[in-house]
Write a protein that binds this DNA or RNA. Structure first.
Lengths: 253, 253
DNA sequence: CTGAATATGATTGACTTTGACTGAAAATGG
DNA sequence: CCATTTTCAGTCAAAGTCAATCATATTCAG
């Protein structure tokens, strides 16, 4: 049985019954436990299901055709997910984390499962997910920005200052340039990001290859203040140039 | 049986009958006493139920709607909507409002359309709706409470103090009693509500008739500090008694 | 056809859940 | 008020479940 066929079968089993044991799936698919477990972890990382001890519980989102849902996991999605996975690998037990608003950082959340970390965020959509994964969560104060549902403004900046982080994960950086540093379109968001960085021991920037060499409107910080996580597709010249200034992780897909 | 299945079963048992013995749950689930007790403590920690000696009493809100429960919620829904409409009628152009977490106050949001108000809230689910209705919104800081997705704790209390409100709308008041005042199950939430009231010119409490004459665990304030909005179904004695102390709006359905 | 990348299944040791047992705490009934 | 019964939290060993590793099998490109 081909991988995708098998996964579709798992999903339909989950649609019938919210919770299905691994053993049961093995019987249905005639695949080994190992394989099923792999499928389940993958499906969870793609945020299609939520796993529980003893079986996997279907969760996230509607019942629109599963085949398309799997294939719709675009290259971009996969890219973001890989970056998030790498980012999560730096996280240790007991860490206090800041998750910046935006979809890139949201992808990190499934990897935090059972890690006993404390998360502070300014992203409203993050909160629901964090609750689902049962992670201790704090939200900073701030004005809600339309579109991204991020908390920004003076209140946000002041509010962040009341926390200290072991690690800070930033997304939404639209420009990464060796001399001109990290930039983003909205100055209000830039302030929030900058303040979060100042409160953190170490900051990771999650960025796709298209952002390198670009410059946006509002400056956030120097390149040397952060570690960068991205995927292949970035020009060699950028890698060598940036790696003189800081750590840059380039992930194969 | 998988943990999650078992817990769902416990919750549905609790929905039928407010109080169920451990022994009874054991029979239903075919699990040992130890396991059930563990489930109960966990569910309590997750703030989904409240335990009592001899069995556990269901508390905080819905989990999965049964057909019967759907009808119940639609009836409740209409009630809540009417209350919200009345509450909204007090709101004037340019007001700054505090919307407490909880479904009652969320119903107010659609009535705010095109009213040019500023809203501050501690309810995460509120934010998404407020964005949709294009309302200027601020979120207070705080720790995320599982289940209700409300922001609570010291940070929340401190954060509220940085705002001033024309009107404050409270939901989630489980007890309204002429002498013993307004009460709610969670002391942390009570502090937040109390602080919000202090920052506001006037406070409205949204409550359904079942809450009158009841007393819950944590005190929020005196009855005289708030205006009450409810629907018919409340006993006459309560109305006359309370109307000596404050304004009480009783809405026909 | 060969080698690299990927998928699979068996095995292991770590971790989680479970149920029986224990003594403490709470309700019950004189 | 005390003694009895019931209910409860904590501990422990056993069973179940899981992630990690490895060796094998399959796929695909060159």
């Amino acid at each position: 049985m081909i991988t995708m066929e098998r996964r579709d079968l798992i999903l339909s089993l989950l649609k019938e019954k919210d919770v299905v044991t691994v053993k049961r799936i093995c019987e249905e698919t005639k695949a080994s436990e190992s394989t099923i477990r792999r499928d389940l972890t993958d499906l969870e990382n793609k945020q299609i299901i939520k796993r529980v001890h003893g079986g996997g519980a279907s969760l996230l989102k509607k019942k629109r055709e599963e085949p398309t849902l799997i294939e719709k996991t675009t290259k971009n999605q996969r890219e973001k997910n890989k970056i998030a996975e790498k980012a999560a690998s730096f996280i240790e037990e007991g860490d206090s984390l800041y998750l910046d608003a935006g979809s890139s950082t949201m992808e990190i959340i499934p990897f935090l499962k059972d890690k006993s970390v404390v998360v502070v965020t300014n992203g409203i959509p993050h909160v629901q997910l964090l609750i689902e994964y049962d992670i201790e969560t704090y939200v900073i104060a701030g004005k809600v920005k339309r579109g991204t549902a991020a908390l920004i403004g003076t209140k946000a900046v002041e509010s962040i200052k009341e926390f200290r982080f072991d690690k800070c994960f930033l997304g939404g950086i639209n420009g990464i340039h060796a001399e001109l540093g990290l930039t983003t379109p909205d100055p209000e968001e830039a302030s929030v990001k900058r303040t979060a960085m100042l409160q953190s021991q170490i900051t990771y920037v999650l960025a796709d290859p298209s952002k390198f060499g670009e410059v946006s409107f509002a400056n956030v910080s120097e390149v040397s203040d952060v570690d960068i996580i991205t995927t292949v597709g970035i020009a060699e010249e950028h890698v060598t140039e940036l790696s003189k200034l800081t750590n840059i992780e380039v992930i194969a897909l």
